[in-house]
Design a protein around this nucleic acid. Structure first.
Lengths: 136, 136
DNA sequence: CTTGACCCTGTAGGGACTACAGGGTGGATA
DNA sequence: TATCCACCCTGTAGTCCCTACAGGGTCAAG
């Protein structure tokens, strides 16, 4: 009764390209599945669960290294999850840094846009502003 | 009276590693400078200006491709700068998309953290939530 | 004359994929 | 049975933006 599927089907279900799945296998994130008589990879629900975990974590911005750590922690179901908590918390802090950086950047660029009033490139404040700091 | 300097000095002035400068030269972003008798690269103020432009644009998040386009537009000083404007505007839109994504992400992760109350990994909502969507 | 800081070229690595090339497999159709 | 096509396989190379060597040459100071 155990449902199995090909790499293409797994890809469709998890929203992942076939090449990416093979790449995860090469990188040790997904265990090598059994093969059919024709040497095709044969996956089951457990593989789908694991791949979905990886994709979701990746969409949330975790690096493959972090995903590896999370999967590793998740394997030891009997330990307290403080460490998972810590990984996530560190990641949130990182995201907040990125948001601040981008907001600052947007502000700078908007200012640039405001200064440029359809003149010629010669006098364009954007080009100027991107140049070296005055007497740096 | 024209001031010249070595690649190391240029790097110090523009806050760039020597390897990166050579990489920009290989990629056609910086013109190959003249060489000294001992085959050392010899740079001047114009190179510094151009490199500073590149570094600043990079810090503002432009891709090298975009930088190339900006430099190219800047070369034609007689044309209106609408197109530079457009490049910058598109970039701002991109940044705003990224900010929204990250804010959404932070929200999701914070929610996860709030749910996880120092239980064991087995029941950790974080691990669960990262798994496949319920009956997806 | 030797030391040490700098410079040169060329190549490989990294992260996270993506895109072939060149072949094999499996099921439907003519 | 032949043919077609979608799918699968491996292996390698490319993307982006650097970064880090290895194995040498140059130059100024001591």
């Amino acid at each position: 009764m155990r449902q199995t599927f090909s790499i293409g089907e797994l890809g469709r279900r998890a929203g992942t390209k076939v090449e990416t799945i093979r790449y995860y296998e090469r990188s040790g994130l997904l265990p090598p599945p059994p093969r059919s008589s024709g040497n095709y990879r044969v996956y089951d629900q457990e593989h789908l669960r694991r791949l979905s975990f990886i994709r979701r974590a990746r969409k949330l911005g975790f690096s493959l290294e972090q995903v590896r750590a999370l999967l590793d922690m998740a394997r030891h179901g009997d330990r307290p999850c403080d460490r998972i908590d810590a990984v996530v918390q560190e990641h949130v802090a990182e995201i907040e840094r990125k948001i601040r950086d981008l907001q600052c950047l947007r502000h700078e660029l908007s200012t640039l846009l405001g200064q440029c009033g359809r003149r010629k490139v010669e006098e364009c404040r954007i080009v100027e502003a991107l140049g070296p700091a005055p007497s740096g």
